[in-house]
């Protein structure tokens, strides 16, 4: 394998990490000022801030690996839909509070496993960012997990909404554990884990909380993926239109 191919694969891999954090962070920021209670408005905005901060670290490193033609801002604000590498799960609309919490919980459990593995990466820069992000992800998982239990084991209404969210989102989780050629290259270089390796841990962590929440693990007969390759749901375009508006309308604006 050529050095050039390695570099391109690493760049792609870093985009995936950065894009997941940025898109989910942006989604959560949509709750700012609209949370169901003040504490949750603050909580979701804080989690958004952590994720956007993590995406900055990943995308800055991606920009360096790419060779400096674009900086992290250009990667965030000047790429169109097909160039995004995030999972379909994180771009799904917020829906109601239960929907947002369930989406967050499914991702947080995955995020903790992934970051734990990446904190042992052969690439020191990746290991450093992952160790930092891991502490935050553990805190996020605690928050979303507690809410899943509270909603699932709450009123009839909250239970029904949490279960509906779980049923609607479950088919998007398959993609989290599907490796491809990029993952394979990262694995061989000791940079990143095989995502299939922590599917069991994820199932156990998710299952334990769902059991306590009296929610049923969906028996989903569908799954959909493609985000890692740039094949997205219609929702991402709308999200980018809002997120990228200012830098596109006023290129290189300063304030």
């Amino acid at each position: 394998m050529t050095v050039e191919a390695q570099r391109e694969a690493l760049f792609e891999y870093l985009l995936r990490l950065g894009d997941n954090a940025l898109i989910l962070g942006h989604r959560l920021s949509e709750w700012c000022g609209k949370g169901p209670v003040l504490e949750e408005d603050i909580a979701l905005s804080n989690i958004a801030l952590d994720l956007v901060g993590q995406s900055t670290l990943w995308l800055e490193f991606a920009a360096t690996v790419e060779g400096g033609a674009r900086d992290a801002d250009a990667l965030a604000f000047k790429r169109d839909v097909l160039d995004w590498r995030n999972f379909l799960l994180v771009e799904q609309p917020n829906g109601d509070f239960a929907h947002t919490i369930v989406r967050q919980f499914l991702f947080d459990c995955f995020h903790v496993e992934l970051l734990q593995a990446l904190s042992k990466s052969a690439n020191q820069e990746i290991a450093g960012i992952a160790s930092k992000a891991l502490k935050e992800a553990l805190y996020h998982r605690r928050h979303s997990g507690q809410w899943v239990i509270r909603l699932g084991d709450g009123t009839e209404e909250s239970h029904a909404r949490a279960q509906a969210a779980l049923d609607a989102l479950w088919g998007y989780t398959r993609e989290l554990f599907e490796g491809d050629a990029i993952d394979e290259m990262m694995m061989q270089a000791g940079i990143a884990p095989d995502p299939g390796d922590f599917e069991e841990n994820w199932k156990q962590a998710v299952g334990a909380v769902l059991a306590e929440a009296t929610l049923t693990v969906p028996d989903a007969n569908w799954s959909i993926g493609g985000g890692k390759k740039g094949i997205h749901s219609e929702h991402l375009g709308f999200l980018l239109a809002e997120m990228q508006f200012l830098p596109r309308a006023y290129p290189d604006a300063q304030w």
Partner: peptide, 13 residues
């Protein structure tokens, strides 16, 4: 604990 998150990233309520 009232909330795991507070007025800044480093605080809980």
């Amino acid at each position: 604990i009232l909330s795991q998150f507070g007025s800044t990233a480093c605080k809980a309520l």
